[in-house]
Write a protein that binds this DNA or RNA. Structure first.
Lengths: 226, 226
DNA sequence: GTCATACTTCGATGAAGTCCGAATTGTTAG
DNA sequence: CTAACAATTCGGACTTCATCGAAGTATGAC
């Protein structure tokens, strides 16, 4: 195996949207489970496994086993450099205007729940309407009114509560520097809004599009003027 | 086409040893013909064409048509950065010791002729022994003694002279900053030394290995102490 | 123990990539 | 015009890749 061969393998490991999404997501250094990464990359769990094996083989990521979980983590911060350089080159060489930061920041997903301006403001609305309450540990709890509200929206609260995931996590968004609703409830909410066709998620990126129907619905339910 | 997709395409363009060899070779900014690049990458001309199309599509290289030639050139110096970063990551992440610069500089090929310390010193020997003479245009011409000498080594001078390539080019080596013999004659010389099994070329990289037999032969014919 | 969950392995399939030989197009030299 | 050469296109054989469903392994909850 020569240097050239190794370089080709390394480049090959990054030559897949699914793997790039995983890497980008892991770039912050936080370890995530295989399932999370599968959801993020929008593939089945077994497909995610093979992608993760590819990344492991070229040492871009490392893995910690913890009980029945396997947590994957970026191998080294320098990996972020490579992603950055790659991204810059693409922006520069294909002289494409990358969608401006503001647009993505407006409505984006934090892999399975709504982040960005939209996520922050939905969460804010839930709190001022007393559907959610902030707990001392920083996370949220659902009020009685909240139960009705979420059920109205089509969220299967029974299923959400049964999930092993953190129920209603407060997730901090770097673009807004404010919290938004994550965890099992956040994911279920996003699922419902997608079912209602209020939002549509770009499968390739973290953008969220709001439909015409969604504009109305979001205004009615969350007091949002879009 | 999203940013992630573009990044994947870009990485994919570099995920082939043949294309990486071409890119590395072109990194100096000099434009080369498709045939030269095919020889370098050790593939047929038509295969080289498809590789070059891939590189063109992601804008890593550009092309100038000149008569029946098509000269390919790195699109921008920044491409070199990406290769460097990729190389560094590979060296770092796969904790492999890349052969030290001095070793490659010692004996390397300039795709089809001998460069590096070895190339420079062979050429020097050819000149002091008056087998080659430096011309005013910077290139070389063969003396009567030179004809005998090269024929002795097994070079088919008839065939070399018939080639449309520049006969005996003076090629400048960046590691030595001195000229070495290129062109049709330089290529034929390297071919003969390979036939005699004095040198062996690593097919994947630009390294040249000198065999035991080669050590003796190079000492006898070129006054080189190895 | 039983069941749900997290993850992997296996097998199949369709898509894409690599490569070559042969034929084709276009250009230059004589 | 013809021959040689540079490069491409075409058709194929072959390999690798991405993906999924189904089945299997391991772990934790009760």
């Amino acid at each position: 195996m020569t240097a050239i061969h190794r370089m080709a393998k390394m480049a090959g490991a990054m030559a897949s949207p699914a793997r790039l999404k995983m890497l980008e997501f892991l770039a912050d250094g936080v370890a995530r489970s295989a399932t999370d990464l599968a959801i993020l990359a929008d593939v089945q769990a077994n497909t995610a496994t093979t992608h993760l094996q590819v990344l492991l083989k070229v040492d871009l990521i490392k893995v910690k086993k913890q009980g029945r979980y396997r947590f994957f983590q970026i191998r080294d911060e320098v990996v972020g450099d490579m992603l950055e350089v790659l991204g810059e080159q693409v922006a520069y060489l294909s002289h494409t205007q990358i969608p401006p930061q503001t647009e993505i920041a407006f409505a984006r997903s934090c892999y399975d729940h709504i982040a960005g301006w939209l996520g922050v403001n939905i969460t804010h609305s839930l709190i001022v309407n007393r559907y959610l309450e902030e707990q001392t540990n920083g996370n949220y709890s659902l009020t009685a009114n909240g139960e009705t509200f979420f059920s109205d929206l089509g969220v299967d609260l029974h299923k959400v509560k049964k999930s092993r995931r953190q129920f209603a996590r407060a997730c901090c968004d770097w673009t807004e520097n404010k919290n938004h609703l994550g965890g099992a409830l956040g994911a279920a909410l996003m699922g419902s809004l997608q079912n209602r066709q209020w939002i549509r998620k770009n499968p390739d990126y973290r953008e969220i599009f709001i439909t015409k129907k969604g504009k109305q619905g979001l205004a009615d339910y969350f007091d949002l003027n879009l």
